[in-house]
Design a protein around this nucleic acid. Sequence first.
DNA 1: AGATAAGCTGAGATAATCCTGATAAATACC
DNA 2: GGTATTTATCAGGATTATCTCAGCTTATCT
Lengths: 227, 227
Amino acid sequence: MPETSAKILVIEDETQLAKFVQMELSYEGYDVAVANDGLSGLMAARDNVPDLILLDWMMPGLAGVEVCRRLRSTGAQMPIIFLTAKDDVADRVAGLDAGADDYVVKPFSIEELLARVRAHLRRNDPQEAEALQFETLTLNRKTREVFRGDRGIELTAKEFDLLDYLIAHPRQVLTRDQILEKVWGYDFMGDSNIIEVYIRYLRLKLESEGEKRLIQTVRGVGYVLRE
Amino acid sequence: MPETSAKILVIEDETQLAKFVQMELSYEGYDVAVANDGLSGLMAARDNVPDLILLDWMMPGLAGVEVCRRLRSTGAQMPIIFLTAKDDVADRVAGLDAGADDYVVKPFSIEELLARVRAHLRRNDPQEAEALQFETLTLNRKTREVFRGDRGIELTAKEFDLLDYLIAHPRQVLTRDQILEKVWGYDFMGDSNIIEVYIRYLRLKLESEGEKRLIQTVRGVGYVLRE
DNA sequence: AGATAAGCTGAGATAATCCTGATAAATACC
DNA sequence: GGTATTTATCAGGATTATCTCAGCTTATCT
């Protein structure tokens, strides 16, 4: 689950369908906005930049293809999935030319739509990657193997979780509270120096042989992965 | 249907074509990533290991043949299908020598490409295979026979299912929850050490005669098949 | 420089996890 | 219906990860 819910903009002139899709997406925990024609869709997208756009292809006034093109021409990067009535190669090519990322043929099942949305939102999420890397350090979530260069490193479960959290946010300073919540999963009672102890364990294992330090202390705040 | 959609990495410098292929694969329900040159392709493949790679042969910078060779040299196992412009015997031979599994000649129909992709994913899907192997250990799903080297091993139904699950995910750490769900098929009530007991049964049978351990325990997480 | 706070370190206590052997319950087999 | 086999439970003990603590070092501030 992402830390904050993703924003999705639905641009669709059939208000019935728009309502339905909005409800389903909301139910899944997304933050949904709806526009009922191309022009207000464009404005909504500019106003409050969404993480993903669902765009009807056949709309009166400003057609989907045109909305898509204008969005892209202003540098918008988010995935755009268009909804098209006919399964037509020409349509797909037009969508591609306009800068869309995917399409769904109406009528569609809601599960299909949700799967698409998930897939596109996930694509660039480091939380989802199975292998992470920082400098010469690599961490594989599936095999739970960690390497510094070609030296394999044995970590305990907590050590691994901590390093996973650090390497998923390279160069970001993570506060003690964030680390406690993500790695230990609750507000640790009272004051404990458990984080310092585990940072130390990691340092001993990762920087054992005169290698340069990777985990930096940010006094008064927390820790960072940084060379 | 696979549990999670297969991940496909497209390495192609013609962005139009890459986009089109991405969209079509995405439409088929695959989880698609795109890289626009050889180097970023290599990095993408390492970061988030795909189940299949589509690789353009003619790219500026790092050529397809070189990308292919480097992937294989790092032990990557997934099928690689390369896209080549000219129907040239020398090219095909070079590709197969570099470790590719198949090729498609441009221009291709999208259906042809999809068919190849499906075929290779099916062939390589451990869920579908009838015989699985890890090191000297083999397991046949049809006959339900298991061998360590040439020594036949008698397993009970549950023991077989457990080993099947392990050997279908070699080197991957499988958590207790995953194992419980896959092998026992539900959330086991309360706390039970049934997994430990069955791991023990397997170890007694598989590693009886001073053979090296195959099933490793990952304390706090689960178990792995790893030498 | 001295005082204070923050982080580091080493050692050891605590608690969780896993292994083991034995035994009970369920299921299949004759 | 009785026996053998498989599956699951349980408790004791061994192992190791996790956590606490007290003293020490380093940074920050006046």
